[in-house]
Amino acid sequence: MAEEKLPAGEAAAGGMPQFDFSTFASQITWLIITFGILYFILATMILPKIGNTISNRHNRIADDLDTASRMQREAEEAEVAYERVLADAKAKAHNVAESTRASINEEIEREITAADAEAAAQALKSEAKIADVRREALSNIDAIARDAASDIVKKFIGKAPTAAQLKKILGG
């Protein structure tokens, strides 16, 4: 294979068809024709279409990504709005509860005061009544004692004492 190592050397010996200059014109002519037609078809028909497809897809993907970002932003805004509404509602509920509790407390207080007052009035009335009853009872006791004493005296002496005598006995 050593002799094949130098193609240039062979060319000098006339062994290389690549250096047969008589074929050059034809080769270059046909290269210009085929290369030119290939260039024309690629440049005007095929490559623009492939380029279009690629850029369409690119745009489409970019659009989709934009849409997705926009939707994400909207979702985030919705979330913020939702949380704000929620917080408002909570605050409101808290206020309502608070004011309700306050009003209920007030009412209870008022009722209790009223009840206390009534109870106090009732108590006073009752006390007065008890005092009356006691006074009446005490005064009745004198009469009963007098009767009883008169009965007892009568049993011993067979004769009922007079009222003056009784008064003397009982010291009343």
């Binding site: 074929t23 014109a25 034809s26 080769q27 270059i28 002519t29 046909w30 210009i32 085929t34």
Partner: peptide, 11 residues
């Protein structure tokens, strides 16, 4: 001119 339209196996 300089062009040669001879159709060869190379062509």
């Amino acid at each position: 001119g300089p062009f040669d339209l001879t159709f060869t196996n190379a062509s």
